[in-house]
């Protein structure tokens, strides 16, 4: 069954980039452009993995992560952010990639986490 990746980032250029990258590699995707909207998308789409930006308007990434964790979800999260040195903000994240990231490395990690 095709795995679904949820992309959370407020920059449309980056969500488009990741969406195309993941789709080209056989994944389904869904998109949220801020932490607040992310919860609705998450509950609706039930993704297998989340790539999450940290700094976004309205609500920032770690708060969204705390919310889904409180609800008991253990969906793996990969942080992709321009804020270097903020790995501690989501300690349970599977990986932390600093922008600008290397597409091959992100893909390899996604595949490893999803076991494909």
């Amino acid at each position: 069954m095709t795995k679904k990746i949820m992309i959370v980032d407020d920059d449309p250029a980056i969500t488009k980039y990741l969406e195309t990258l993941f789709k080209d590699n056989g994944f389904d995707t869904c998109i949220a452009d801020d932490g607040k909207q992310a919860m609705d998308v998450f509950l609706d789409q039930q993704p297998d993995l989340i790539t999450l930006d940290l700094e976004m308007p309205e609500e920032w990434g770690p708060r969204f992560f705390r919310k889904i964790s409180k609800k008991g979800y253990t969906t793996p999260v990969i942080v992709i952010s321009g804020l270097s040195g903020r790995t501690h903000s989501i300690p349970k994240a599977e990986a932390f990639f600093a922008k600008p990231f290397k597409a091959d490395e992100v893909l390899a990690k996604v595949k490893a986490v999803l076991g494909v």
């Binding site: 920059d11 250029a13 980039y17 990741l18 195309t20 600093a98 922008k99 600008p100 990231f101 597409a103």
Partner: peptide, 11 residues
């Protein structure tokens, strides 16, 4: 600049 570079990578 990091965000812009990532966007340029995407483009």
């Amino acid at each position: 600049i990091k965000g812009m570079l990532t966007g340029l990578d995407g483009g």
